[in-house]
């Protein structure tokens, strides 16, 4: 096992399930991983255990991306957790993955304002706050991967009630586009990663009744695997050699389907 302080450090928000979980486990092969959770403490600890079993280093941090105080507290714990090491606290890769869907089955016009606000507080404002809080630790040569969604460029991926989700994620995309420009000259990279439909619990929770129709609508005729998105993220944050890209979609071709996508089931 590599000694403490030798490994680059990755922070994966929303690391207890889905893409975040797969990402934490994958990055555990090359990074010391800090993963954050909101409600799923037990699941997060299981991910930590999975990384350790593979010989990696991992820690779990509570962080509610919708709560500024919680973000500050997580930052303080992250810094404290690196105290006593031979080098100052640092962050090499921030995977901004935490997100919420709200109640995906209601058309946004029927949503309660509190629910709308909660989605924005996490997906847009929360992601921006997390970046702001951890920016001082991100090194020149560091990378931010903003895990967006195909719902951002596609609006509602053929399902009328997903507009609130896509809009909130699109706000974060625009933020990281601007931030990427701002910090490009200082060697900090921001990558907007746009996953399509990935085979996670979120997918099964929100698309359960029409899973097969959605699968058939994807050009590659399959959902993405969390592990293959994790593999992609691992490549994006790897410095050896660095990939100079700012945005990439991994959606099995769905973005390019044009008019066909609106025939996705309702």
């Amino acid at each position: 096992m590599t000694s403490e302080g030798d490994l680059p450090i990755a922070l994966v928000t929303g690391g207890s399930s889905g893409i975040g979980r797969a990402c934490a486990i994958r990055l555990g092969e090359t990074h010391e991983v800090w993963l954050t959770y909101h409600r799923g403490q037990a699941a997060a600890e299981a991910v930590v255990e999975a990384v350790r079993r593979r010989g990696g280093r991992a820690s779990a941090l509570p962080l509610d991306a919708g709560d500024a105080g919680s973000i500050r507290a997580a930052h303080a714990r992250f810094v404290r957790g690196q105290e006593g090491r031979s080098r100052p606290p640092r962050l090499d890769a921030l995977i901004a993955n935490a997100g919420t869907f709200g109640d995906g089955y209601r058309f946004f016009i029927d949503m309660e304002e509190e629910e709308w606000d909660a989605v924005w507080a996490t997906n847009a404002i929360g992601v921006i706050r997390v970046f702001k809080a951890f920016r001082d630790l991100l090194l020149p040569g560091g990378t931010v991967v903003n895990v967006s969604t195909i719902s951002a460029p596609l609006g509602a991926i053929g399902y009328k009630s997903h507009g609130h989700y896509g809009a909130s994620k699109a706000a974060a995309d625009a933020f990281f586009d601007a931030i990427g420009d701002r910090y490009a000259g200082e060697g900090l990279r921001c990558v907007n990663l746009v996953p399509g439909l990935i085979d996670t619990r979120m997918l099964h929770d929100h698309f359960a009744h029409e899973l097969e129709a959605y699968r058939a609508a994807i050009p590659m005729q399959r959902f993405g695997e969390p592990e293959e998105i994790a593999r992609l993220i691992a490549r994006l944050v790897s410095a050896d050699p660095r990939l100079p890209i700012r945005r990439i979609a991994a959606d099995g071709g769905w973005l390019q389907k044009g008019w066909e996508r609106i025939q996705a089931p309702h």
Binding site: A184, M220, I229, R231, A234, L243, P244, I245, D251
Partner: peptide, 26 residues
């Protein structure tokens, strides 16, 4: 490098993409 990445399995769910490598020019 980006060409090789897109050919490789690291991009196994990426298709139909035009990946810009412009040093940040939008």
């Amino acid at each position: 490098r980006v060409v090789a990445f897109l050919l490789s399995d690291a991009a196994s769910y990426v298709t139909g993409e035009i990946v810009r490598v412009t040093g940040g020019i939008q």
